[in-house]
């Protein structure tokens, strides 16, 4: 019953978000677009750090690669940005294989530093790509975004300007990505592999001793989150329309903020990143006029939450109230009478 209510409220929120572009101002749509993209990144980082125990500080690698490949597809190969974005996601996933080969030899803090170093190597390498503007970057050609499939249709049906139609399309794609991430994460985490993954996170030695292969599961999560992160990176820079190595591979924007969001909201829970991104957006709106103070406040809040509410706002909330949206637990079967017990005992005889 509680679950059904929670699911229903999520559906209502998604539906409400979906109609915002039809009424809302473009500034609001653009703001919410960035919130949704940060949420996609946060859901991915939460899968890595919260469930697979892979505390990566280098996810900007996949944002940047997805975005740069999308730009290359649009500028050099003449493809439309959406197809380019898809290729960007795939390239990010392919790249994650050799990256995993190196960083999976490291553990804990060394793993974090390793991923950061790889991301910075990529940033420096992409700044050598002169065809895409080298260190200063470049812009999407005029009209490239407007040629995306769907933009023309939106203009005709809704009678909006090309730029507004691009904003709408990217917004809905971001919303779709959020929903897809949530559904896919939930299904994966409730599956056999998801259970094994959480066992590995809690105790890798014991997990091996009950037949779980930690490396295979972690590699799978690393691969899949690289794809989704790359896809999201491409989408962000379709909307932005401009790219530079420093923006695309920004550790602050695509990893530090994302870590803040996940930690504040509740690491290792599915609703956590949603709460975190709302808090982050609220603070940003509240404090954006104060410049540096804003970053200091973010840092202080992050430290306070880490010290006094280790499980984040959502973790604290569920502990306090017992309410849990999108629960990942496997409930044991009910056993009202002892007759059932005898019947299942035959399983041991195999």
């Amino acid at each position: 019953m509680k679950n059904a209510l929670g699911l229903l409220s999520l559906l209502v929120i998604v539906a409400a978000l979906a109609v915002v572009p039809l009424f809302g101002l473009r500034a609001l749509v653009q703001d919410l677009f960035m919130v949704l993209c940060l949420l996609v990144l946060a859901l991915n980082w939460n899968m890595l750090a919260g469930f697979a125990g892979l505390v990566s500080v280098g996810q900007q690698l996949f944002v940047g690669v997805g975005a740069y490949v999308m730009f290359a597809a649009a500028i050099l190969w003449g493809l439309d940005p959406l197809t380019g974005g898809l290729i960007g996601g795939l390239v990010a996933m392919v790249l994650s294989v050799p990256v995993a080969f190196f960083v999976f030899r490291l553990n804990g803090a060394y793993f974090a530093i390793g991923t950061w170093a790889v991301a910075d190597i990529a940033r420096l390498s992409f700044s050598q790509w002169q065809a895409l503007g080298g260190g200063t970057g470049t812009a999407l050609p005029r009209g490239a975004a407007r040629d995306m499939p769907g933009v023309q249709l939106l203009r005709e049906v809704l009678g909006v300007s090309p730029a507004a139609a691009v904003d709408m399309l990217t917004y809905w794609l971001a919303l779709g990505l959020v929903v897809a991430m949530l559904v896919a994460s939930w299904i994966f985490l409730r599956s056999r592999m998801g259970l094994g993954l959480q066992a590995v996170r809690d105790n890798p030695v014991a997990a091996r001793s009950v037949g779980v292969d930690p490396v295979r599961l972690k590699a799978l999560v690393f691969l899949l989150t690289a794809f989704a992160t790359g896809l999201c990176g491409a989408l962000i820079f379709i909307q932005t329309g401009r790219i530079s190595p420093d923006a695309a591979f920004s550790v602050i924007d695509w990893t530090a903020f994302v870590i803040f969001i996940v930690v504040i909201g509740g690491i290792g829970t599915l609703p956590g990143p949603i709460i975190g991104v709302l808090v982050f957006y609220g603070l940003q709106r509240l404090l954006s006029d104060y410049g540096t103070v804003y970053l200091i406040v973010l840092g202080v809040i992050g430290i306070v939450v880490m010290l006094f509410a280790r499980r984040g706002l959502w973790g604290g909330f569920t502990q306090w109230t017992g309410v849990n949206l999108l629960p990942l637990e496997h409930a044991p079967p009910k056993r009202p009478d002892t007759g059932i017990r005898r019947n299942t005992r035959s399983v041991h005889g195999e």
């Binding site: 259970l195 094994g196 959480q198 105790n203 001793s209 637990e329």
Partner: peptide, 23 residues
Amino acid sequence: FQIPQPFDHLSVYENLLVAARFG
């Protein structure tokens, strides 16, 4: 294990479920 190594954040039932489904 001599020093117990449970999966801390999983329930007792889920601790067994992992072992049953994998090993």
